[in-house]
Design a protein around this nucleic acid. Structure first.
Length: 183
DNA sequence: ACCCCGATCGTA
DNA sequence: ACGATCGGGGTT
């Protein structure tokens, strides 16, 4: 089982968004398989939080790839992104769906639900995915098929087909479980 | 200092 | 289809 390094995240955001599907995400005592992502890239994307330049909130997006960017939305929910591309390109991947394996088998569909369940808070924004002991992403050899659709809930940049979602979540999770029992 | 709005979710 | 709820960003 191979941990994803900075070199994985330091690539075009659309590519990283697609490649993250089927990867194993670890946060403290939680582990799950990534099922749904959305790409946000500053330059061509008015929906990206970095579109209008750096602020204290979006600072992690302007930092090195392989870190998380967490923000509060609608005053009640948190959303988690993985920062991508070189430092000068402020872009990230929103993690929208995670099939939890541990501590329970639960499909967390939706970025708000995901952060609520894992207790990921904006105070963790900027944490490293490649250097931390309780935050990491692993390749478990899965390349699931996925659908490509428009992104959810946007008023700007709603025409960009930058949402990627695994076609068969249950089957993918079963393959992940098989891999983990054999390794 | 103030105001408006939002990368959501659950219920109707 | 809609309301809850509050930090961020832009404007005064």
């Amino acid at each position: 089982m191979e941990r994803l390094l900075t070199s994985f995240f330091n690539r075009p955001t659309l590519q990283v968004s697609q490649d993250l599907l089927g990867k194993l995400f670890i946060y403290r005592d939680h582990q799950g398989v990534i099922m749904e992502t959305e790409a946000y890239t500053a330059l061509e994307d008015p929906a990206c939080h970095a579109y209008r330049g750096p602020t204290p909130r979006n600072a992690p997006m302007f930092g090195d790839p392989g870190h998380i960017y967490v923000y509060l939305i609608y005053g009640m929910y948190h959303c988690m992104n993985f920062v991508t591309e070189p430092k000068e390109i402020a872009a990230a991947v929103l993690i929208r769906g995670l099939y939890l394996l541990k501590p329970s088998l639960t499909y967390l569909n939706g970025p708000g639900k995901l952060c609520r369940e894992l207790q990921i808070h904006r105070t963790q924004s900027g944490a490293s995915l490649t250097e931390s002991d309780d935050l990491a992403v692993y390749d478990i050899g899965l390349k699931p098929e996925y659908n490509t659709t428009l992104r959810i809930g946007l008023t700007q940049g709603k025409d960009l087909p930058w949402r990627f979602i695994v076609k068969t979540p249950l089957q993918t999770v079963q393959m992940a479980q098989l891999f983990l029992t054999q390794n």
